[in-house]
Simulated assay, not measured.
Amino acid sequence: MSQQPRPETGTPARATDARLLTETVTRLRRALRASIRTEYPWETLPMAQVELLQVLAERSPARIGDLAARQRLATSTVSGLVGQMITAGLVARAVDPADRRASAVTLTDAGRDQLAAWARAHERRLNTALEGLDEADRAAIGAALPALVRLTDQLDGSV
């Protein structure tokens, strides 16, 4: 099925949408990281650690290799991050209940608290930004959220 080019660019609509979505998501992540630093210092919880905490909040306990595969990172990278997070008290390493020869990482109460504080800070920043938009823009973002969740699920399942 042929796509009609967009008059302003001459490129197919899907290519332009994909490019615009990529640019927008990248800018949104950068803006969130920059804006949150005033309330929640970056050094307190680096993004790589946040992402591991989020995975562990969904699936805990987890082996280092499973975390690495899920995050598409080298096992040594995840092992180093986990070591830092153990030192900070955010996660703990214990014997894997499914295989006593292996170890698994679990989220600690301190890790759960840090992740919750990080999420609350981001929600406050986003709520403030959303309040600055007109009702039509807020409604459009709200209407797009289910499709963005499905898109994320599609991307997660495509590897």
Rank of each mutant, 00 (worst) to 15 (best):
103 S>W: 11
139 A>C: 00
90 L>V: 11
112 R>F: 05
98 A>G: 00
99 D>N: 14
82 V>T: 08
47 M>I: 10
151 L>R: 11
12 P>D: 14
50 V>Q: 12
56 L>E: 05
159 V>R: 12
94 A>V: 09
42 W>R: 14
83 G>I: 00
34 A>Y: 06
100 R>P: 06
158 S>D: 10
143 A>I: 02
158 S>M: 05
81 L>V: 04
135 E>A: 11
136 A>N: 10
121 A>H: 11
68 A>G: 05
154 Q>T: 12
43 E>Q: 12
24 T>K: 00
20 L>M: 13
132 G>M: 03
159 V>P: 07
89 G>N: 06
138 R>W: 02
144 A>Q: 08
147 A>K: 09
77 T>D: 10
45 L>T: 08
151 L>G: 02
52 L>I: 13
139 A>V: 10
90 L>Y: 15
82 V>P: 01
122 H>Q: 15
77 T>Y: 11
120 R>Y: 01
153 D>S: 07
2 S>V: 11
97 P>G: 01
80 G>Q: 13
134 D>A: 09
24 T>Y: 07
30 R>Q: 06
59 R>A: 05
4 Q>G: 08
79 S>D: 05
120 R>T: 10
22 T>I: 06
5 P>N: 12
36 I>H: 04
82 V>L: 02
142 G>R: 04
96 D>A: 03
133 L>S: 00
3 Q>D: 12
116 A>I: 03
127 N>H: 09
